[in-house]
Design a protein around this nucleic acid. Sequence first.
DNA 1: TAGATTGTTAATCGATTAACAATC
DNA 2: TAGATTGTTAATCGATTAACAATC
Lengths: 220, 220
Amino acid sequence: MKIFKIPEATITRLSVYSRYLKDLEKKGVVTISSSEIAEGVGVSSAQVRKDLAYFGEFGTKGVGYNVKDLLSYIRKILGLNKTWNLILIGAGNLGSALVTYQEFKDRGFNIVGVFDNDLVKIGKQIADLKVLPVEDLPDIIEKYDVRIGIIAVPAKAAQSVADVLVKNGIKAILNFAPINIHLPKGIAIQNVDLSIKLEALTFSLTASRQQYKLNVEHDE
Amino acid sequence: MKIFKIPEATITRLSVYSRYLKDLEKKGVVTISSSEIAEGVGVSSAQVRKDLAYFGEFGTKGVGYNVKDLLSYIRKILGLNKTWNLILIGAGNLGSALVTYQEFKDRGFNIVGVFDNDLVKIGKQIADLKVLPVEDLPDIIEKYDVRIGIIAVPAKAAQSVADVLVKNGIKAILNFAPINIHLPKGIAIQNVDLSIKLEALTFSLTASRQQYKLNVEHDE
DNA sequence: TAGATTGTTAATCGATTAACAATC
DNA sequence: TAGATTGTTAATCGATTAACAATC
């Protein structure tokens, strides 16, 4: 079986396209061209067609794409044609905010368990979930067939939490701890590093008074 | 004046290097080579040297880099040789979590004002800040010389919030709303889109049973 | 049919990696 | 001096863009 390599940026853009198409569908738009999508999300039309071409032929020459169908194809590609059950480790402020994060629910992500090691936090109610001790992880993972875990613990605890997740069968991790987590091959990870994003901003602000310039297309 | 274009990935890595160097400094390490840095953060040594080369010559041939000095140079490049005052719009769960986010404080980011339009939220206490109405934005921005704003409002309010920020002199935005914000030239933006990150994970999980493969070096 | 737009190939652009002369 | 490691150039790799034949 031939394996096609897909740029990660393509996957990011597919998410963006899917959101845009969802809006269009809600508005009752039936057909759309690659250049209209491009216009709507801020990329080039060649980029849109190229991104889609990795996965198949979804359009009609001379006509464009059927909004409903394309949305459905993209959702299928991304694995969004089902809901996903997640667990979250770390019941601090950030963790609590994520449990109630509406966008996750809207996109089909369901947090079914919140865990912490801190005795003060265990038993605490967050939305409709009670914070559980980490010992209960295996039960919840099995019960809800969980494959994705969110790490929202301090940096120094993150690696050991990741190890526990992997040991219990978690296959993908969304990590908020600002640290490079080491994982066995085959486990996917995405890092969300809020300070790094802020530091890209302070660089821009500082660099504009220096001789540097971020090599980034302007967002607009 | 010649303008050098810097890859955005380079800036991201500089943040990572700086964190790693800070750890080394704390441990009392005096000198380090590009390959040791590379090893520590998970990139190639050529990458480390190339990233630094955009900004100057910081090392000594045959010896390596002085940890303290290199850290200080990188912090200066990123604009981290000062603290930054931020404001935050949107006092929901996510906003509240960000106000108390320890990593921001550790890296020199100071949230000095939290704003909302919701009468229920105005006046509420979050850590040592009271939620203020958006009318008070100009006062706070001036008083604390704020140049960076964080948007943590729902997607449909994000563009108008951004417009208000820009009108009041904000020059850089960290945006958590899952929407493409349009800004005048010269305003920097970084988007944090949590759903997109999760969808990259569901893609990985789904794709591994299909014929695709993310073109991404393995994280490890 | 004529006009529009896809899917795809080739050209371009940019970032990463390899290699090594310079030099501490 | 000999060994180590930088800074930098050239080679490679990968992603984006341009262009256009195919075709609805």
